[in-house]
Design a binder for these strands. Structure first.
Ligand code: ZN
Ligand code: ZN
Ligand code: ZN
Ligand code: ZN
Lengths: 146, 146
DNA sequence: CTTGCACATGCAACCAGTTGCAGCTACTAT
DNA sequence: ATAGTAGCTGCAACTGGTTGCATGTGCAAG
């Protein structure tokens, strides 16, 4: 099944209608292969279909987030970044000192999820976290300076 | 040392000036004892000092967040909530089904922090997370319905 | 294929939050 | 105590994003 069909099925399963606008918008996020801002999506969509209104794009991204099709995360730029949620969940470590962002495999949060279920009977949905801190390189530099 | 003095020292340590506006704004967040939205702070401040401009309040909350004095978190309402960061860090578990929010002690994230340091040499600052999922009550209800 | 309707879209008005700037004030150094 | 300066504040203009509404469209039922 193609990407487009999967997206359409996901929408219908959620009781939403499949429209050309939604398919174009979600396809743009999906095929970006990286995080995209709403502004970037608007530029991209309007380049091909200028009649599509920004409000439709904001609404589509927002409902897709509620459906769990995409994640919305503040990576430190204060401008929300959207990303298609595939089967391989991941998170990000972001250095507050040098700004570098790296991916973090979901398994690092397995322990936490297990603990929450076993101790508190809470089933966490650990979607797509941005974890801020100081990276290895900057930690070394800081140590040398002192 | 009083709360006010602690706040003033924190500001000066960060190279910022201590002004009556900032003290009033940060005091409002600090003594709220719970999460507050920017709108709520604006109402509260302007009730006593109507001349204080909303832009000053947004700017103060924003710089206090950068300094690590307060946290800013989306608890699912899509309206950022600010909270004074005291010595006892905590996080929140929020049920997507019933909306209940409960506190989560920081020790639940100790394991993750240790893992990130030891395996990736990344010093995480696990500030104030909102973890979404399904609470015990709603999980029981869901099981009964099936 | 046709009909009916609930929901999605485009448009325009609207609003919360941001930004640029001129004057003011907290702090520092005499 | 005084003067100098960096940076904070209030104001007003602006802008990204949201909302209300009339029209259009996907889709299910017949
Ligand atoms: Zn990501
Ligand atoms: Zn770094
Ligand atoms: Zn909290
Ligand atoms: Zn619940």
């Amino acid at each position: 099944m193609s990407c487009e069909n999967e997206t359409a099925v996901a929408l219908r399963d959620a009781g939403q209608k499949v429209t050309p606008q939604r398919m174009a918008i979600l396809s743009a996020v999906r095929h970006a292969g990286e995080h995209v801002t709403a502004t970037r999506v608007i530029e991209q969509i309007q380049a091909a279909q200028p009649y599509v209104d920004p409000s439709t794009i904001y609404r589509t991204l927002s409902s897709a987030r509620e459906l769990g099709l995409v994640s919305e995360t503040d990576m430190g730029t204060r401008d929300a970044e959207f990303e298609w949620i595939g089967k391989d969940r991941h998170h990000h470590l972001i250095c507050k000192s040098c700004g570098t962002a790296m991916s973090l495999d979901n398994r690092y949060l397995d322990g936490l999820a297990t603990q929450l279920i076993e101790e508190l009977d809470f089933e966490a949905d650990l979607g797509h976290f941005a974890i801020f801190g100081t990276c290895a390189k900057c930690r070394t530099q800081n140590r040398e300076e002192n």
